[in-house]
């Protein structure tokens, strides 16, 4: 808890400059992009937590009729897991300087992700065909809203992924690429985690 210790400091006592690195020497500092992403992840997590809280509150009311579970969701889960795993692997190989594997990994990760989104859209189509429309029941409405918002965040991730691959093509520096890939992997893990929670939620309630 260095933060906790930091705010116990009596600032009027010290009269020195020590404490933080001088300009240009940020070696020991976490890259701001990573801090920014962590905060963003926290914000999105809060948003999903609120949706889920609303879900539980609404579920208690007496007109709730759970939706049937689509088997396809299991496949989609595997796809998202693969994309998350692949991006982590991509980051690892990049660290070792294996450029070729890196390229494959990056593209493969995106393909799995696109397949996941496509799979989710397919599930929607199946549900609609089976007559489970958004407005029939709050359980349906929550299913569409939660999966939809999640999918939008996945697409947002793909947008950042595009920037990463553009960086790669335009010959960005290794460190920069490494950071981008690390952050992509981190974000994908988060998306996977959110999805697992949502999946469990819609399956078991």
């Amino acid at each position: 808890m260095s933060l906790f210790r930091a705010i116990l400091e009596k600032p009027w006592k010290q009269q020195t400059a020590s404490g933080l690195p001088a300009e240009g020497d940020y070696g020991s500092v976490t890259p701001p992009q990573k801090v920014g992403l962590l905060f963003f992840i926290a914000v999105v997590a809060v948003m999903f937590a609120l949706f889920i809280t609303a879900y539980f509150v609404r579920m208690e009311l007496d007109d709730w009729r759970p939706m049937p579970e689509s088997q396809l969701l299991w496949l989609n889960t595997v796809l998202l897991f693969l994309s998350s795993f692949t991006l982590q692997w991509t980051h690892n190989v990049l660290k070792k300087g294996q450029d070729k594997q890196f390229k494959i990994g990056l593209i493969l990760g995106a393909l799995f992700t696109v397949a996941f989104v496509y799979g989710q859209i397919t599930v929607w189509g199946q549900m609609q065909e089976a007559g489970y429309y958004l407005y029939n029941n709050p359980a349906n409405a929550f299913f569409y809203v939660l999966t939809g918002i999640h999918a939008i965040h996945v697409l947002g991730g793909l947008f950042v992924w595009t920037k990463t691959i553009v960086k790669y093509w335009s010959g960005a520096e290794h460190e920069e690429l490494e950071l981008s890939t690390e952050l992509c992997a981190l974000y994908w893990h988060f998306l996977l985690l959110v999805w697992l929670v949502l999946f469990a939620l819609v399956s078991y309630t």
Binding site: A6, P11, A17, S18, P21, E23, V35, G36, F39, F40
Partner: peptide, 24 residues
């Protein structure tokens, strides 16, 4: 607000100059 807010928080945490501890 989220775009701005991520900026403010990260800037405060990561971009303080030499000697600028949190309690300064």
């Amino acid at each position: 607000f989220t775009m701005g807010g991520l900026n403010y928080v990260t800037t405060v945490l990561q971009a303080r100059t030499n000697g600028m501890t949190l309690m300064r």
